[in-house]
Amino acid sequence: MAAVIVEELNRLGHVINRHKISQYPTTIGRAFNNDVILEDPYVSPTHVTLVDSEEGCVDLKDNSLNGIVYCDKTITGSSITLKSGEEIVLGRTRLRFYAVDHQVSETRPIKYSIGFVKKWTQPVPLVLCLLVFVFMLLMDVMLSAKQELSFEKGLAELLTPLVFVVIWASVWTFVGRLIKHQSLFWVHVLIMVIFLMVSNVSGWLVGVLEFNLVSEPILDGFQICLLGLLIIWLIANHLRYSTSLFKLTRNLSASAFAISIAGIYYLNTMVSDDKIQFVPSYSTTIKAPYAKIRNDSNIETYLKDIESIYDIKLSDNN
C-alpha cells in the first residue's frame, strides 16, 4: 500500500497545506468525519474517496454534487486514476498528488544571509535605523522650513513621512499574507525607511552638485526608477515560491504592475490637464550657492537661442 502526499494549493500555486495518506480508503470532504477536511463551501461533505492504485499513484472516486475537475474536464460520479504530480480541483480547492518516492527539485543555494534580515529586524537595530531616519527628517525640516520653527510644526512635518511608512508597510504585509500566507511588518518598514533615506541623501547630494538644467529631472527620474524597481522587486519576491508561474511570468507580471501604475498616473495627468496651458510651465527651482552654477550665457547668445520659441505651428494640437 503506497503512501501518497496530498498538497493543498492556492491560486498562485503556493502550497498552503500538506497531508500524508498511508491508509485506504481515505475520504476528502467538508464534513468533520473525513480524513482530510477542506474549508470550501463548494466541496461536498464527502467529496472524494481515495483508494490504492495498481497502475498510477492513487485512484479517486467522486461522490459529490459539483464533481471534480481533472485535465479541464468535470467528472461526476465516476473514478479516475491519478499519476504522481497531477492536479484536480474540488469546488474551489486545488489538490496535487505526489507518490512518496516522487523526485523533488534540486536544492536552491541561498544567495544572501537570512540572518542579515533577521538581524536588522530585531528591536535594537530596527530602532537605531528608525532613529537615524527621524534624525534625517529633522535635519531636512530644520534646513528647509519655510516658516518659523516650532515643536508643533516640526512634529507635523515629521508625521507625514512616518505615517506614509506605516501605511506602506501595512499594505505590503497584507499583500504578503494573501499571497504567501506570511509576511513581516517590520521588514517592510525597514525597506521603506531605507528607500526614503536613499531618496533624501540623493536630494541633498543634488543640492551641492553643479546647478544646471538637467540635475532636477535626473533626480526626479532617479527617484521614480528607484520606486519602480522597489515595487517590481517586492512583487517578484512575493511570487517567488509560486509553483504555478514561470520565472519569466513572475518578473513580467511584476514589471507590468509597476509600469501600469506609471501609465495610470501619466494618463490621469493628460486627462486632467487643460488643452491650453494659460500659465507657462517652467521650473522655478533654484539652489543655494553651495552648488557651482553651470557656465552662464551672455545676452547676445541667449537672444539667439530663444529665436526658436517663436516658431510655433498653428495646428490642431496647439
Binding site: N212, S297, D305, I309, I312, N318
Partner: peptide, 16 residues
C-alpha cells in the same frame, strides 16, 4: 483656447 497657442519656453543661465 480659441485665441492663443500653448506657451513655448526656453530656460538658461545668464550672466548680467
Amino acid at each position: 483656447e480659441e485665441d492663443v497657442t500653448n506657451f513655448k519656453c526656453h530656460s538658461d543661465f545668464l550672466l548680467i
